[in-house]
Simulated scan of single mutants.
Amino acid sequence: MTKTRSVRIDYFSDVLCIWAYVAQIRLDELRHAFNQQITLQHHFIPVFGHTEHRISEGWQDKGGFIGFGKHIHKVCVDFPHVEVHEALWCEQAPCSSAPAHQFLKAVQLLEQQGEISSECLSDCQDRTRFEETAWQLRLAFFRDNRRIDTRSELLAIAEEGGLPTAAIEELLDNGQAMAALMRDIELRDEYRIEGSPSYLLNEGRQKLYGNLGYRILEANVREVLDKADNQASWC
């Protein structure tokens, strides 16, 4: 019997990154096109770990948070499939993406422990419950301008999604979610991940970074799936 080949994609992103928000449609299409032939493993990295430093200081000569917000709106003109709140980054800007990342690692741990289903949800673009939660956080920030750097807002989103908030809080409080997040950062350094979003395939041999078109992602996945055993990928 011929064994069906599969490929693991380690996906590194920051929940506050506009390019990861834009890229969700490509992840959904990969899932739809390849189904059980791919496994997505999500990792979170602190590109926006300290927004005051990154934006207020980094964009000091370009308008600070307001200038950055205008930049995001300009970027999204070319991507009509996403929605951006008119006051994004201009009002109640988040201090850090880290609280949202820690929260998502808690949800991911619940999935790994079997506390929530790891099956894809047909009514959520075939995302798992964890992946749908990550998408809802991105929507909460970019579309609705919610403060996803606060525990109260994160738990409200969890409750809206029918997630076990008490179990999430326990993982946040006992250090397990933080440890999982720190491991993501260690993996970022081990694989020399440059930023968000980044895709790692073929046991680290293929690394893709940035606002890439779907066909580039598809070609790299097909190269891994189609190559013979022990043969180097051409990508």
Rank of each mutant, 00 (worst) to 15 (best):
K3G: 05
S6C: 11
F12Q: 04
W19F: 15
Y21T: 02
Q24S: 11
Q24K: 15
L27E: 03
R31I: 15
Q36M: 05
V47K: 02
G49N: 07
E52S: 11
H53Q: 13
R54F: 05
G58C: 09
D61L: 06
D61I: 04
I66R: 09
I66C: 09
K70M: 14
K74F: 09
V75P: 05
A87P: 01
A93Q: 04
P99G: 10
A100S: 09
Q102W: 00
L104S: 06
Q112K: 14
G114W: 08
E115Q: 14
S118H: 11
S118A: 15
L121A: 14
T128W: 05
T133V: 09
Q136S: 06
R143L: 03
D144W: 01
D144P: 00
R146T: 10
T150R: 12
R151W: 01
L155N: 07
I157A: 00
I157E: 00
A158G: 02
G161K: 10
G162W: 07
T165K: 13
L172Y: 04
D173C: 08
Q176M: 11
M182W: 07
D184W: 13
L187I: 12
E194V: 10
S198G: 08
S198W: 06
N202L: 06
G204V: 06
Y209C: 10
G210Y: 07
G213I: 03
Y214Q: 13
R215K: 14
I216L: 13
E218G: 06
N220V: 04
A228K: 14
